[in-house]
Design a protein around this nucleic acid. Sequence first.
RNA 1: GCCCUGGUAGUAUAGCCCGGUUAGUAUACGGGCCUGUCGAGCCCGUGACCCGGGUUCAAAUCCCGGCCAGGGCGCCA
Length: 434
Amino acid sequence: MLRSHYIGDLRPGMAGEVRIAGWVDRVKDVGKFRFIWLRDRSGLCQVTVQKDQGEVYDVALRLGLHDFIAVGGIVLEKPIAKVGVEIKPTSIMILSKSDSPLPLDVSGLVKSGLSTRLDWRPIDLRDPRNMAILKIQATLVRGMQRYLDSNGFIQVFTPCLIGAGSEGGAELFEVDYFGRRAYLRQDPQLHRQLLMVAGLDRIYDLGPSWRAEPSHTPRHLCEYRSCAVELSFIENEKDVMMVEEELVAAGIKEVVETCESELNLLGVEVEVPKRPFPILEFPKVYEILEDLGKRIPWGEDLDREAEKLLAEYVKENYDHDFFFINKFPYRVKPFYVMKEDGTEWARSTDLIGGGLELSSGGQREHRYERIIQQIGEKGLNLEDFKWFTEHFRYGAPPHGGFAIGIERLTMVILGLENIREATPFPRTPERLLP
RNA sequence: GCCCUGGUAGUAUAGCCCGGUUAGUAUACGGGCCUGUCGAGCCCGUGACCCGGGUUCAAAUCCCGGCCAGGGCGCCA
């Protein structure tokens, strides 16, 4: 390897020669010295070169910002540098020169716009703060996965290419599939349900979904990942909600416990949300909103303003950033949801965090006749869904589930202003590259 | 998909309303001075009006279209 150590693993006064490699973060001449800051993903150190160092100094003179170099040297016992570990080099090799000036600001003094940053994302991610977001996200997912694995959930991979949408919606990307029309999934929903019919009992699916909605907002991506969970043998949607809040808490707990330095870098304080999460139910939600001065007609869905108002309400009354909204009006929900018997409400649940919808889910209808009936009620063509419904003729367990948007969860936990920061290469209506 | 705002050196911005100067500033970059610098400091220099059309003697500035960007709504995760 080019290096004997990660920069972050260097300690003052380490014995012997160390070899490190990384990007030049700063070059400064002062007196008889040339100071070079060197960074890899683990940290930053200062390489101090003196004018009388002959060949090493000559190489140092040619260095520019973001050159990739390898350095061999001795770690000083007592660094004078405030940035941390200081190295007196015995060799410097330039492995790859950087053009200059760089196409975006890397000094941190003039913050480039997000669009410019995304055009040059690989360089942008060299900024430890930007990289920290991805590290934290990886930890979040690991925490969630650990929870699922240790609670009997089997990881599955459901198809991304599908022959029909889950709700016959128009927001699907079309793909040519050997001359036939196929689509990128908007949600692995129906296939998860079929695996419940199969008896897998408890599953999760980490994977992408696509939405062909040309949304221009700080919280939408055309391609995003979700942690989709489905479980059987449930009594009602409350069982699903319990798993969901445990899952979210487990993910955040992992972040809090292992990402201290990344969180400090971002200047964010994260707390593990206390359980249980508050639950607001329809139709009571209408009353709460009415009291808050917002009228939503009976049977109508919430709009964005209502969502935000409820979040404030929960913060004030329950001191909580996360909460469930349950028992959505059946008429605004898709055919596969389970109705609460004899009512107009569905066993449908949203998880709201930081005022943003993080997931939808709830109990699904598992009874064949009801599914058929509901497809009719929604005015859908039964033929289009036979690939799904037919399987329910042969014994299906009561089940439910949800899908949590991973970028959204990351965004909310870290208080990011734009979801595009929560994914390395975001896909938005105008952006397909890099 | 609708609505609002914007597009000026590599980056980030001022100027635009009220058309006419060498288009200002910061940072990056190049050169110099100084000094163990750590957002060092000081001096000098290079470098820009998104694209197309229109109005006008004259357009960065006014009008129209396009593309792109930021945001609000819709929809959603």
